[in-house]
Each structure stands twice: as C-alpha cells, then as structure tokens.
Design a protein around this nucleic acid. Structure first.
Length: 571
RNA sequence: GGGCCUGUAGCUCAAUGGUUAGAGCAGAGCGCUCAUAACGCUUUGGUUGGGGGUUCAAGUCCCUCCGGGCCUACCA
C-alpha cells in the first residue's frame, strides 16, 4: 500500500469559482484521490481557501463586512459548493488558520536565520483616501503610449505596453478614484530566491517525467534575463500573517503582513495540522505526511493546479522548503492544466462570464459536470466548453451508454427472472472473450489513472461501458430466453455483475451515480483486481432493486435556455 | 518586445521521426426490439493552417509566414 499526499491549488476566497477553476485543479485532484483510495492506498487529500491579500480586503469593504467575517462566510460558501461537487477533501482548511500563522512565521524565521531574507526599501504608490498602499494594477490612468484612459499601473490592456505606475498620466486609485496618490518609502522582506537558483535548477532538471507545461514555465523563470529574481514576501496590509512577531530575526516590520503567495503554499502543510486538530489526531499524525524525518519518506506528494500557479509551486514554495534547512516533504509530481474556455471566449470571474459552481449545481447534479469536465480536461492545450457539446456528450455517454445499459439489464431481469440474480447456465466462449477484453481494458484504465492522464482514463472507462452493450447485443438474452432459459440466466447474471463492476470503476468520476448503483445492486465497492472474480461477486439468488433512470437526458429546450441564461454577465 | 504552448475529419480530441494519420460524437446505410427512440454492425469524411528545408522516411525536426492562447515576477 502506497501513501499518497494530494493537494489542489487553493481557491481564492474572493467569490465563487467557475468551472474553469474547478477543472484546473480541484476536480482532477479529487479524481486521483478517489481512485487511489479505491485501490487501497492511504491518501491524504488537502485543500483550503486562500484568504489573504488586497482583493479579499476590497471585497469585504464592498459588502461592508469586516474582512474576517467576509472570509468566514465565503469559506462556508466554498465549502458547501465543494461538498456539492463531491470533492472528497480530507480537510478543506483556511490559510488564515492559527496553524498557518504559526507555520508561516516559523518558515520565515528559519529563512531569516539562514540568511535567505533581505530587507529592501522601495517606493510604492500610497493612496491617503483609501488609506492603503496600492498594488500597481490597482492604479489606473491614461497610457503614455496609446492614450487609453483605463490603463493599469502594471500594463496597458489596450496596447499591451508594460508600465510603471509612475508612467501613467493622471493616475488614480482603481478602488476609489482618488487622485491624491503619492510615492512613499516602505520596507519589505525579500526571499533571496536568486541565492537558491542552482539548487532549484538542479531539482527541476531532474523532473524529466513532469508535464512540459510544468517544467517549461519553471525553466523560463530560472533562466530568463538575469535568472531567478528575489521576491518580495511582505505587503503593507492589515489582513494576513503578521510579518513582525516574537522571535523574528528582523525589526521594523510592524503593520505589515506576509504576501499571500508566501503563506498560501505553507497552508498545504498547515492544512494537515488543521486536519489533525479537527479529527482529534496528534501532531505526529500529520507530521508523518510532511516530515521526511517523521515518517514521510515513503510518501508520494502530487500537486494539481492551473498553469498560472506553476511558478509559485516549482520555485517559490520549494525555495521556502529547501531554504528552511528542515526535512519537509518536497513535491514529487506536479500536474498542471491549461484553461477551459467558454463558448469562444474565456471564463471570467470579473466579468461574470461562463458557468459558476453554484449555478452549475442549480441546474444539474454534480456527476454530469464531473464527467464532462474530466473527460474534456484541458491537459495538452486549452479546451472549450459549449452547451451543444455538453448536451451531446453527457446524453450519449452517461444516459445512453451507461444509464441505458443499467436499465436494459435490470428491467429485462425483473420481467423474466424477478429482482434476484438468476441461477443456471455456464460461461461460453463469448463470456470468456468478454472477460479477457475487460481485463485488458481495466488494466489500461488503471495505467491512465496512475499516470494522471485524465482524458485518456475517461476514454478507457467509456470503452468499458461500451463493452457491456456490445456483449449484450451479441448474446441477446431476450432471444435465448425463449429456447434456453439457463443460458439467458447466465447472460443476465453476468450483465448484472457488469453493473457492479461499472459502479466500482466509475466511482472516481461519478461518485453519486456509482453509489446509487452499488445500493441498487446491494453490494460493496471492492476494486476488481481480478475481473473474472469480480464478475462473480453477485451470486445466484442475490437480491437487487431496479434503479430509476440513472441520468435523465438534457433536452434541447434546457440547452437553449441555459445557453441564453449564461451567455452574458452574471447577475 | 521576449518566452512558451497551440493549429489534425463538420465538432471535441489522439498519434516514442517509421505500414494506408486514428477515436468518440455528428452524418449515411443495415440490423436488433431487452432498454432512457436506447443498443450493435458497416460506412462517408483529411493537401495534418500556408510555403520552404533536413531525412531513406516528417503531423512529428529546422526556417518562414498566418491564426489562436498563456506567461512576462506588485491580481491571486
């Protein structure tokens, strides 16, 4: 039995995530977690809300709530939605947890003691009206290059020119519109990533089995220009982990907090501490997942994320861990995803374009979304969601191929033999061939799942479903029953066992439907390590119930309605 | 500007430099009647974005042009 630590990129606290966010990290991570649990491995699957930073403060200000209240409320909302999508986190924590405060300050201390933190004084834009320093992109003004009047302080969206806030003509706060901006000196801590460039580069160069998407982004940052740059890890904000604390190896950082991208990855570790605390476990229980000197040496750690998160997971977070000089577990494999587009354009949180997690669950059960999203996961390039494709794929795969198979088998059995697994008859060549075929296909499915090839795994699973329909069509028990009832009984018995097999194999993709099938077949969820044996799990005389329609089809009217409803801006 | 990814059938996507470029869906034809008008079988469909080059051999490698996307370190 292997031990597998799985983390999904942390969803930011600022609002409800869309389906593109979901398929880029949490959903495939859940697929992998469920699969490995089903295979009998020991899994710890962690995720949390990423709660610090300027956007959280501004979102709270907008609703009039204290930021702590806002984050608590939004955490609950995101937790409910992740439950709705059946994301099987062992812990859905919070980066604002006491565990993360302690651990973030601990890492900062270690890095400081190791000489890997520098104090840098710089000048940044301050808005007296807003009472805060403003990140570059929160300053708007007229572009000196093209005259666009809503250029941001980091880049003009119109002409794409890189800008500095001081370049802008008539700069103003994007938060309040205030124009009384001024440059103020402020001191910040920088993580000396440049000092660790060689160590990080050697580590990345050794990861030859990682997706190109992952390593190419890392190498770009390592080698671009003057090489890996130091990164500021503090901000002038109120909401976050205080950068000044007892035992800190620096002074003068009062009123500042750590930058979210410093504390958020540390929450992966702290979240394990939250898990232990929430489930009455000791520190040793979580440390055996994270400390190689305390039992984690045999852990395989896999991270899931969208491509925009890669630099922080390949460089900054490893720099934090390596720089600490302590035996923390480093990531073994990074699975990164491209983006899911929505009907010819991008999903957009800010513009409310596309389908968001709450909306998705309000119109269809989670399994529909899980199946479509995972079977179309943007692994090699960006992929595209269209309502037409969604309707056709889901109806065909889930309703016709899988759902209808269950219907035809259970209803035929009920009408001819009653709701019990019929006795009599023995396998012939056709059945032996089916078992051989399925054994190969299950092996293929497992290989793709082990390699985290999500779309290929979905294709292999679908082929297993199709094999049942092919068998049934060729065996034709509805004909055999007229002349050879024992043979028909054997065919039906095998087919009923196929339903159980499908329930077990499909559970990582469509857990609710799988649970419905297992309950209907009145059986367990043991993995089919031996397909022939698995197809005898339901013995003659075993009672079952005929399930209701497993997946109702999406009608043309529904599709048209949804396409219209979600075309424009979220209201 | 720089870097990376990408362009393959009507659609969504596959193809360690090595047979005649594949699969699902959609389309067409046939079969079946247990089933959610579902299922099965057969089948149409390609100058692999354009052009040039390397090679015995190129969807794959190189150059160039065209299109799409991402990143570019202060959003997270």
């Amino acid at each position: 039995m292997a031990r597998i630590l799985i983390t999904s990129a942390l969803p930011y606290i600022n609002g409800i995530k869309h389906l593109g966010n979901l398929v880029g990290s949490q959903l495939p991570a859940d697929l992998y977690a469920r699969y490995n649990r089903a295979r009998g491995h020991e899994v710890l699957f962690l995720c949390a809300t990423d709660e610090h930073g300027t956007p959280a403060e501004l979102a709270a200000a907008k609703t009039g709530e204290p930021v702590t209240d806002y984050c608590a409320r939004m955490h609950a909302v995101q937790k409910e939605l992740s439950d709705g999508f059946r994301l099987s986190f062992d812990m859905f924590g919070r980066s604002s947890s006491p565990q993360n405060h302690r651990l973030t300050q601990h890492f900062a201390t270690r890095l400081g003691q190791a000489g890997l933190i520098a104090e840098v004084t710089e000048r940044q834009m301050y808005s007296p009206t807003d009472g805060r320093f403003l990140p570059d992109r929160y300053i708007e003004g007229t572009c000196p290059n093209c005259g666009y009047t809503r250029a941001r302080g980091d880049q003009c969206e119109n002409c794409t020119k890189q800008l500095d806030p001081t370049d802008l003509i008539d700069p103003r706060s994007a938060v309040s519109g205030a124009t009384d901006l001024e440059l103020r000196e402020t001191k910040h801590l920088f993580l000396r990533q440049s000092a660790m460039r060689g160590q990080l580069s050697d580590w990345i160069e050794g990861k030859t089995d990682w997706p190109v998407l992952t390593t190419s982004i890392a190498k770009k940052w390592l080698n671009d220009g003057d090489g890996l740059q130091d990164r500021g890890i503090t901000r002038d904000l109120d909401w976050g982990v205080p950068a000044q604390f007892d035992g800190a190896p620096w002074a003068g950082m009062d009123g500042k907090v750590f930058y979210v991208w410093f504390d958020a990855p540390i929450e992966y570790i702290a979240c394990a501490g939250e898990w232990a605390a929430a489930t009455g476990r000791t520190d040793a229980a979580w440390e055996r997942w994270w400390r190689t000197d305390k039992g984690a040496a045999d852990v395989r750690y896999v991270q899931f994320m969208g491509k925009d998160n890669v630099p922080f997971h390949t460089l900054s977070f490893p720099a934090t861990i390596l720089g600490s000089g302590e035996p923390w577990k480093l990531v073994d494999y990074i699975k990164s995803f491209n983006y899911l587009n929505y009907d010819g354009g991008q999903f957009s949180t800010s513009q409310g374009r596309g389908v968001f997690m709450d909306q998705a669950l309000s119109i269809l059960p989670a399994d529909y979304w899980r199946w479509w999203l995972l079977s179309h996961a943007p692994e090699t390039s960006d992929s595209e969601f269209t309502w037409d494709n969604f309707q056709v794929s889901v109806n065909k795969d889930l309703a016709d191929v899988l759902g209808n198979f269950v219907s035809r088998v259970t209803k035929f059995c009920r009408s001819r033999f009653g709701e019990v697994v019929p006795a009599g008859g023995a396998y012939g060549d056709r059945e032996q061939a089916l078992i051989a075929d399925l054994s190969a296909r299950v092996a293929e499915y497992q290989a793709h799942m082990d390699a985290i090839e999500v779309r290929k795994a979905a294709g292999a699973l679908r082929a297993i479903w199709v094999a049942g329909n092919e068998y049934l069509q060729a065996a034709a028990p509805w004909t055999a029953v007229k002349t050879d009832p024992d043979a028909a009984a054997m065919m039906v018995r095998l087919s009923l066992n196929l339903i159980r097999l499908y329930a077990v194999l499909s559970a990582p993709f469509i857990p609710d439907a799988a649970a419905t099938l297992r309950a209907a077949m009145n059986t367990d969820d043991g993995w089919p390590d031996d397909v022939a044996a698995a197809l005898a799990a339901l013995p003659p005389g075993h009672a079952f119930t005929t399930p209701e329609v497993l997946f109702a089809k999406i009608t043309d009217e529904q599709r048209a309605d949804w396409a219209t409803r979600f075309a424009g801006v979220r209201t």
